[in-house]
Design a protein around this nucleic acid. Structure first.
Length: 567
RNA sequence: GGGCCCGUGGCUCAGCAUGGACAGAGCACCGGCCUUCUAAGCCGGGGAUCGCGGGUUCAAGUCCCGCCGGGUCCGCCA
């Protein structure tokens, strides 16, 4: 800014700042972080050229001439390249970022947040669509938590739907296959019962009867429901736990019917004057979407959407904001929910919509029994990883091989789900997902294992990194190679990446960063020998490796992926 | 029919919010690199009308309009 002023005097500066608040300084300077040509670059000459009616390249050259870099600056040099002004980071900048990483970067996002994800119906095992939901939701929860938020994850149990009623009715005349994993056995019953009901009206009436009784809280019906729902949930939880995904709380939608929550919501909506009576049913007039919301059926029973309103009102009282991770098919319903909550004066949840996952052979359907279960996927991914481990490591025992295969196989699956931006449709090709992709999780895990290996070896040889515990690393950091510098730069971006992924609710940003960090680390690994370097360089590099390992591990963990010490 | 999302090398994706320096990766393909900290790695090569057409701009993959293709939703289901 000073340079700008020295170059063109107050007139240009005031012309530029006339409509700009001071906090928009960054915008004003048109700064590009981590462009490929510089560490930081400014495009301000473009906008100045308009005001000054002057060639932008000339302007940037003039500005650079007037820039004086102070002692101990985070910037080491400035260059004008055509219309661009390029800034380059100093060693001090890298030292500062390493110190922050070693000290544990502290983020200061504050507030309580409830993230709801997965919430699969308790009528069978998780399939590939749920996997995407769970992986995105879990990663998001981890990222927000890391950024400082107080996060609670919830699984909303849809126990009042027709599906569950069909299942409960099927349990009357069918037995659970004990040999199978419980959620799979339940799905079998559900599919069969569904077929039977299609052809048998008597059975259909029975289902409706069950739904009525459950809503009324008939104790025998409730007991039957709870038994089967709980069983299925156990199966689902087992799958989620294999993936390292744990919900803090399971909330049953029936709770809101049995308490007065649902009826309270209906009463409150009545007071809004937006309800329309249609026969015996009650509808809520919608303005933002072209579809009114049914609040109560003709027979007086509640609907999913009504209970969902009650659930969100309940949630909203327990947090500062909430995020729902939902499939694209829920978009309209989510909009209706939002408007209903507006009417009630309850804050809306943020909705993170993810697009559908389809199979190469067509769409998925639980009802038709056409899906790939997550359990099957896990099994195949881990088996594939095991082949790989067995091929490379005959020096380790069986247990270790299995452990690594588990970490790698599951990591590959999860990474595949997180790396793609949620709004993209995905065609899920099982062979490709299971394939230990070159630049997927295994690639990042491998880089972590390499870093760990260096540090392990250093310890074994009794080599210490002198700089680690010093408050001032100055003169300890030796940057001798361009790969080293590139790695340090990438490391320095870490905190910005986390905050961006957090604030924009985009876990895939972390996925991309982790892959890039692994890549530059591998290049560093090729170019810069650590243990055999001369003493001062060695301790500097050891320090860098330590930071890389830490950041790789954190990045993987933010995606819910484990970082193996060796593989 | 209407709403929303997607359309970037053969395949899978990043980049689009806040327009700028040659459109980046990976897979697959071709060719190199293990006496040195794990080759699940590294280096090099070929391969792209950024769906199509218009507009705004000094500058468009990015913003606006129209169209085409794919997905999804439009139940007193959840």
């Amino acid at each position: 800014m000073d340079a700008l002023q020295n170059t063109y005097g107050d007139s240009a500066l005031s012309a530029l700042t006339a409509h700009t608040a001071p906090h928009e300084l960054e915008r004003l300077l048109e700064i590009d972080i981590e462009s490929e040509h510089a560490d930081i670059s400014s495009r301000i000459a473009f906008s100045l050229s308009k005001i000054l009616r002057e060639n932008p390249s000339k302007i940037s050259a003039e500005i650079v001439k007037n820039i004086e870099i102070p002692e101990n600056s985070l910037v080491s040099s400035v260059k004008a390249v055509g219309p661009y002004i390029n800034f380059y980071a100093s060693e001090l900048f890298f030292e500062k970022s390493l110190r922050e990483i070693l000290g544990g970067i502290c983020f200061h996002r504050k507030g309580r947040v409830i993230i709801e994800h997965t919430s699969a119906n308790p009528d069978g095992p998780l399939h590939i669509g749920h996997l995407r939901n769970a992986c995105i939701g879990d990663a998001l929860a981890r990222i927000l938590r890391h950024a400082g938020y107080d996060v609670e994850t919830q699984y909303y149990v849809n126990d009042m739907g027709k599906q569950v009623a069909i299942l409960v009715s099927g349990m009357r005349y069918m037995k659970i296959d004990e040999k199978k994993k419980i959620d799979h056995a339940i799905a079998e019953i559900y599919v069969k019962a569904n077929k039977i009901i299609e052809e048998d009206e008597e059975k259909m009436r029975e289902v409706e009867e069950l739904m009525r009784k459950y809503e009324q809280g008939d104790s025998e019906t409730v007991r039957k429901y709870e038994e089967v729902v709980e069983k299925c949930l156990n199966g689902i939880r087992e799958t989620l736990h294999k993936l390292g995904i744990y919900h803090d709380r399971f909330v049953w939608e029936s709770e809101f019917v049995r308490s007065s929550d649902v009826s309270d919501v209906v009463k409150a909506l009545e007071r809004s004057g937006r309800l329309i009576v249609h026969g015996n049913a009650v509808l809520l007039k919608m303005e933002s979407v072209d579809k009114d919301l049914v609040i109560r059926r003709s027979d007086g029973t509640s609907l999913y959407s009504t209970r969902d309103i009650a659930y969100h009102r309940w949630k909203s009282e327990r947090c500062d904001f909430m995020i729902d991770v939902l499939g694209k098919d829920h978009e309209l319903v989510a909009k209706q929910l939002g408007e209903a909550l507006d009417i009630l004066g309850v804050k809306r949840p943020e909705i993170l919509i993810f697009e559908f996952v389809s199979l190469p052979e067509g769409s998925l359907s639980t009802r038709a029994g056409r899906f790939i279960s997550v359990d099957e996927l896990i099994e195949r991914a881990v088996a594939r990883a095991y082949e790989e481990v067995a091929r490379r490591r005959d020096d380790i025992d069986e247990e270790k091989k299995r452990k690594i295969a588990n970490i790698v196989g599951i990591g590959a699956m999860k990474y595949d789900m997180v790396r793609v931006s949620p709004e993209k449709n995905m065609v899920f090709n099982i062979e490709e997902a299971i394939d230990i992709e070159k630049k997927g999780a295994p690639f990042i895990q491998y880089a972590h294992a390499r870093a760990s290996s260096i540090l392990r070896e250093a310890e074994k040889r009794g080599i210490s990194d002198n700089g680690v515990n010093k408050n001032d690393l100055k003169n300890d950091l030796k940057i001798e190679h361009s790969s080293e510098r590139a790695l340090l730069m990438k490391l320095a971006m870490f905190d910005a990446v986390i905050l961006r992924a957090c604030d924009e609710r985009k876990p895939h940003i972390v996925a991309k960063y982790a892959r890039e960090l692994a890549e530059v680390f591998n290049q560093f690994y090729r170019d810069c020998a650590v243990l055999s370097a001369r003493d001062d360089v060695r301790s500097s590099r050891l320090l860098i490796v330590k930071c890389v390992r830490s950041v790789l591990k954190t990045s993987l963990n933010l995606m819910g992926i484990e970082a193996p010490e060796e593989m």
